[in-house]
Every structure is written in structure tokens, then in C-alpha cells.
């Protein structure tokens, strides 16, 4: 379970997170929605320690995320980045098996390669992709490889940062389905940030909306359309008029 208590983060005078309170129950898929620049990515980065919060607490299974063994903490996480963030200098299989080739989870090279190929197969990629380099793959294939890397070490918690951005609707649907299936199979806790409402409905058990640096609304995905919150309603209908200012 992930608990955020009064999480705060500013960049200069700009307060991005102004006291975020959020709970992601274990084994559930939480999707955070919100406009561009609303602080969704910063929220994920604070949990992972990529950004240092100015205030508040981050608890993962009751443990303060900012204290204790960092490697052991991160070993429980997998993350799919918005642009996949694959290492250009490594072939696909070494990207997928990165964690299995070094550090505490190190395995023999042949075994790591086998696991990588198995994970690639799980995300719908054939074994001949394993020896290609990321630059040789399409955007959709790179996302799949990123997903395979995120699940390679069987993490308990998986973060998805804009998993369908830049993909065509069919490929976006494929990625959504994979995320749903894989997190269910693994029993992992999932936290996704997106502004793609198709993804929200495909992936989420729970939805939270981040606006003005705070969680504006949260609840089960089934209640999203009847939230009664004008901000959520404007966001899910994509209306240019409403309480959320839209630049024209």
C-alpha cells in the first residue's frame, strides 16, 4: 500500500504539489488524471526519490520511503517511462534484463537472457527483437520493451507514466490491455498517470484527479462519470469551458 500524506513540492515560486493526500491500496490499480503540468510526473518522481519533496510523508507498506535501504526499496518497484527511456547503447534483451545482470538480483547471463525473452514474449514481442537496439524499434515496440523491463524483476509495485502517449489508438489499446493483464497476473499495485481517458477506463480500479497541487477527487472508476465534481466532469468530457482554465 502506498500512502501520501500532505506531500509538497515547489520549483522556485511555483508550488506543484500543495499537500497531496492519497492512498493506493495493495494490489489495486490507481490512475491519477490531471492536465499537463498539474504535477502528476512530479508526484511519481517524489515517491521514487527522483525528486525530494519539500514536505509531507510517503509511506510504502507503512515504511517511510525516504528512510532505510534505498536499493531494497527500489527493488520493489518497476516503472514504465513516458518515452520508454530505453538505454540506447544496450540491445533490447539487456535493457529488459538490466536489473538481472547487475546488483542484488544478478543472475547468470544465459538465465537473464532467457527471462528477458520470456518477458518480451509476454508483451507480444518475438525473440528476434531481443538482439536489436532500441533505435531500430517503433514507438509502440519501445513501449512494450519498456513494459517488459518494468516487470522483468517481478516488482510488487509498478508505475506507468503516460503509457499510451504518442501511440496510435490501436497500439494504445494493446498497451492498456497488457498493463491490465500483467498487473492482475502479478497481483501488483499499479499507479498510472495519464490524461488519456480511454486508458483510465481500461486500466483503473480507482481514479484520482490532481488539480491545483491537490487531489481534487478520488474514487472507484465506476463512479467517475457521476463524480459530481465540475473539474472532473470538464476533464473527462474534454470541454474547453469550465472551472479549469484553458489557454486558446
Amino acid at each position: 500500500m502506498i500512502q501520501l500524506e500532505n506531500l509538497q513540492k515547489s520549483f522556485g515560486p511555483h508550488k506543484v504539489l500543495a499537500g497531496v493526500d492519497l492512498t493506493v491500496p495493495q494490489g489495486r490499480s490507481m490512475v491519477i488524471i490531471g492536465g499537463s503540468g498539474s504535477g502528476k510526473s512530479v508526484l511519481l518522481k517524489c515517491i521514487l526519490g527522483l525528486e525530494t519533496p519539500d514536505g509531507g510523508r510517503i509511506l510504502v507498506d507503512g515504511q517511510d520511503a525516504t528512510k532505510g535501504d534505498r536499493d531494497a526499496f527500489l527493488a520493489r518497484f518497476g516503472m514504465l517511462f513516458q518515452g520508454a527511456a530505453l538505454f540506447d547503447s544496450l540491445p533490447v534483451w539487456q535493457n529488459v534484463a538490466f536489473r538481472l545482470l547487475r546488483g542484488a538480483l544478478k543472475r547468470p547471463k544465459a538465465e537473464a537472457r532467457e527471462i528477458a525473452i520470456e518477458k518480451l514474449r509476454r508483451v507480444g514481442l518475438s525473440p528476434d527483437v531481443a538482439d536489436k537496439f532500441p533505435a531500430e524499434l517503433s514507438g509502440g515496440m519501445q513501449k512494450r520493451v519498456g513494459l517488459a523491463r518494468a516487470i522483468a524483476a517481478e516488482p510488487q509495485i509498478i508505475f506507468f507514466d503516460e503509457p499510451t502517449t504518442g501511440l496510435d489508438p490501436i497500439m494504445a489499446g494493446v498497451i492498456d490491455d497488457l498493463i491490465r493483464e500483467i498487473t492482475a497476473e502479478m497481483g501488483a499495485t499499479a499507479l498510472t498517470i495519464t490524461h488519456d481517458m480511454g486508458s483510465v477506463r481500461a486500466i483503473a480500479d480507482e481514479v484520482a484527479m490532481l488539480h491545483g497541487g491537490k487531489i481534487r477527487w478520488s474514487g472507484p472508476v465506476a463512479e467517475l462519470d457521476a463524480s459530481g465534481d465540475p473539474y472532473v466532469e470538464q476533464f473527462i468530457t474534454g470541454s474547453a469551458t469550465g472551472p479549469i482554465a484553458a489557454l486558446r
Partner: peptide, 17 residues
């Protein structure tokens, strides 16, 4: 710098490296 811009550095951190 390219690794930083494309979040590969962040990815390294999340992979405990």
C-alpha cells in the same frame, strides 16, 4: 545529457543503479 533528457538517468535510478 541525451540520457538525462530522455529520462534514461531516471530509469537507471529506478533500476537501483
Amino acid at each position: 545529457a541525451t540520457m538525462k533528457v530522455t529520462e534514461q538517468i531516471d530509469a537507471l535510478v529506478t533500476l537501483s543503479t
